[in-house]
Design a protein around this nucleic acid. Structure first.
Lengths: 188, 188
DNA sequence: GTCTATACAGTGATAGAC
DNA sequence: GTCTATCACTGTATAGAC
């Protein structure tokens, strides 16, 4: 049996591998080992090699958040969009069982390769959330701080729940962060 | 000119390199390149190779936090120890310019190598902070949650301030987390 | 304790058969 | 599009001279 892929099918597989092994830890042979896709095919899809693979994965992740989270935050009913954001975050990160690739890439020298993409992902998240809070009646300064706190808090929960191997800790933290956002809406 | 090292001198140098490059990104040749220490010397100090180097670095980091942060939190005046913790954290992590090696190792497969050390570092931090909060008059449940929130929040700020390349964001977040801890003391 | 030389498996990458 | 073979290079690790 022989499987024929398209580039779009390969990207999510690569995403899981980069998430688990990191940029440096991901090697072509480990990709082949886990997916069955040979070097020939990989270079056919990604002539730029590993760096192009990681860039494609980052673009894919970014696109998902843009559609599922940022755009609703900018356009839909603020309360509903924020509720949806928390549901999406818990689901996407599998209650802390899955890390944020963008956050992970920000920590080591990998950041230098993808610096603009990494920054943009977080800037747009914070800005979209800030806009939703303002629409919900929060004042400008409080909205900015609350948005930053939420996005930062998610990253922290991903690190800590993974270090403690405790998914409950992740869910607890998402609940607390959601409460804080709700409080910011009312107070602002 | 020839420099003669002791093992204890080498560990902090290795720590910076592991922090910048990650476990997989750190190679023996890059260590030599940055420190001038040859492979022969490295294997003399760390016969177990790279894994032993990383373990030594983790033990060193852990020891520093134990002495400078955890022990004061368990024994000294609660308010003073908590104030000292925030000062130490901002200083140690260079306002977000330096990452938490333990947190970084928790994110990818490196975690499997050092899982007990990683978990223990965070468990003891949270527990020591919880004890300080209880001594300050906070009730048990609130103290546990507040301690977890603070430690998690620090990790999040490290990721986000690095992604945004914004040290002010790190300091702002430390201020906010400190305020939240102070509020928890009073409310609890 | 440090250096040089070296072993050999694994790295990203390329070329050509099918 | 996928496979196999192969490239030059770098990875960790070891041994022995000094």
């Amino acid at each position: 049996m022989k499987t024929v892929y398209e580039r779009a099918d390969v990207v999510p597989l690569l995403a899981e591998i980069f998430r688990e092994l990191g940029y440096e830890g991901t090697t072509l042979s480990r990709i082949t080992e886990r997916t069955g896709i040979g070097k020939g095919s990989l270079y056919h899809f990604f002539p730029g090699g590993k760096e192009e693979m990681a860039a494609a994965v980052l673009a894919d992740v970014d696109g998902w958040f843009e559609r599922a989270v940022y755009e609703p935050l900018r356009r839909d009913d603020a309360g509903a969009a924020i509720d949806a954001m928390w549901a999406n975050v818990i689901d996407y990160f599998r209650s802390g069982g899955r890390i944020c690739l963008v956050g992970a890439f920000a920590l080591d020298e990998t950041r230098q390769r993808f610096s603009p993409v990494i920054r943009d992902y977080f800037v747009r998240w914070i800005e979209a959330l800030r806009q939703a809070l303002v629409r919900a009646g929060c004042d400008e300064g409080a909205a900015r701080a609350a948005a930053e706190e939420a996005v930062s808090g998610i990253q922290g929960a991903l690190v800590l729940s993974r270090a403690l191997d405790d998914k409950d800790m992740f869910r607890r933290t998402m609940d607390r962060l959601a409460d804080r956002l709700a409080a910011a809406k009312l107070e602002g």
